[in-house]
Design a protein around this nucleic acid. Structure first.
Length: 376
RNA sequence: GUGGUCGUAGCUCAGUCGGUUAGAGCGUCUGAUUGUGGUUCAGAAGGUCGCGGGUUCGAGCCCCGUUCUCCACC
């Protein structure tokens, strides 16, 4: 994997770049649709490529390990072969799932034991076997196994947690470096900064992560309960230290506004379940603001879903029809909303990239944020 | 026609011995959702307790009348 910075914004830390992997090029800043179980929910790859113009998607180690399981993925020849997506894939390590399924987790130095949400069976993830599983899945970018500290953690816990994540990183990297990709194309390993909401811990973590000198770095443990202003502050603290010539990935973020704020602070990659999950619940993100398609006010609004939208679903269907589909619990509602939201997210980062290239990103961003904050 | 039975929120129904402002589930409406368990959670609106009268300090509940549902028998 290589990363090349093409343009930098004169008035902020925003930059436009190009990541090259064996499965193709990713133009940054980028949003990566989440495809947890080898599928971006409710969206075909045809739409993902042609309409949404996704350049890379995510998979999840925890979920794929439990189902279909590594044996099937290995026999399929890896995730790309299994699901038919021939562009880049990034897999999250499962660290977040261990955090979010907290009632069943037990953390120890060796790793994390947890119970499957599917059948209750017991499993152990370690920094080493998570590398092993991600080798089998065959993602282009694989993530370190970390503990995602909740935004409400106290300093003592956050420090201990961060230090363990660092030790896990050492072990994971060692294992990664002495193993080979299985399918003939290269894989790269991103370490993850932790440190909760404490600037000194964030600095310490960023320095440790930077010193590993990997091809890209991630910022984890944000948008997990802390105020947004704190999140922005942590991004600033961390990005002062993370190398400028490597891509920076802000994990799990976020709202369209969060993403613009992240880009301005020098983040290159984002992923989030919001456009798909909230879309399935009737929330549409548009350049003019947020719409809840279940609201009664759309009942007889026969105008296009999004008159400024770039996806074919935006013009092909009316708000009244989409509301009807949601109220009737029709599958088509989930498809239309997911396609619209992902197309919008990709449009947004694409516009950000254009404005970084033309040098007026900050000005454009200011106006955009005003529009995005509206409730329609 | 006679005897019995039934009527409580949009729907299906609880409602104790007669006791504070009549409840639930579903539906409807509104909001939340940030490295996805096709969810989940939070809140709101919604009532002439079929109708009329009576007893009682007090009636969804007891009494009388009436109407309606369903059943059985003429």
């Amino acid at each position: 994997m290589t990363f090349e910075i093409q343009n930098t914004d004169p008035n902020s830390n925003a930059r436009a770049g190009k990541i090259t992997t064996d499965h193709g090029v990713i133009e940054t800043p980028i949003f990566m649709p989440v495809g947890t179980v080898a599928s971006v929910k409710a969206v075909h790859f045809h739409e993902l490529k042609e309409d949404i113009k996704a350049q890379i998607i995510l998979g999840n180690t925890y979920h794929l390990y439990l189902r279909p399981g590594v044996d099937i993925l290995e026999r399929a020849g890896g995730l790309h072969k299994f699901n038919g997506w021939d562009k880049p894939i990034l897999t999250d390590s499962g660290g977040y799932q261990v955090f979010s399924l907290s009632e069943n987790r037990k953390l120890k130095e060796e790793g994390a034991t947890f119970r499957s949400h599917i059948d209750g069976s017991k499993h152990l993830f370690t920094p080493e076997n998570v590398v092993e599983i991600q080798r089998i899945i065959g993602a282009d970018i694989i993530m370190a196994f970390d503990e995602c500290t909740p935004g409400t953690a106290d300093y003592t816990y956050a420090k201990k947690s961060m230090e363990m994540t660092h030790r896990w990183l050492d072990r994971g990297l060692q294992h990664f470096d002495k193993t080979e990709p299985k399918y003939g194309y290269s894989q790269t390993y991103f370490p993850i900064v932790q440190g909760c909401i404490y600037p000194d811990l964030r600095r310490q973590s960023a320095e440790f992560i930077a010193s590993q000198n990997r091809e890209g770095n991630a910022i984890g443990g944000l948008a997990v309960g802390e105020p947004v202003e704190t999140m922005y502050e942590m991004i600033e603290v961390v990005n002062e230290i993370l190398p400028k010539d490597k891509p920076r990935y802000l994990m799990g973020v976020g709202t369209p506004i969060n993403i613009l704020e992240g880009i301005e602070r020098g983040v290159d990659m984002f992923d989030c379940v919001m456009p798909t999950r909230n879309g399935r619940n009737g929330m549409l993100f548009t350049s003019q603001g947020i719409m809840n398609m279940k609201n009664e006010k759309w009942k007889d609004d026969f105008s296009p879903v999004d008159e400024f939208g770039t996806s074919y679903v935006d013009q092909a269907y009316s708000k009244a029809y989409l509301r009807h589909l949601f109220i009737s619990k029709e599958y088509l509602a989930l498809q239309i909303a997911s396609i619209h939201n992902l197309a919008f997210y990709l449009w947004l980062v694409g516009e950000a990239r254009k404005h970084i290239q033309t040098g007026d990103f900050s000005h454009w961003k200011k106006g955009m944020i005003e529009q995005l904050g509206r409730r329609l």
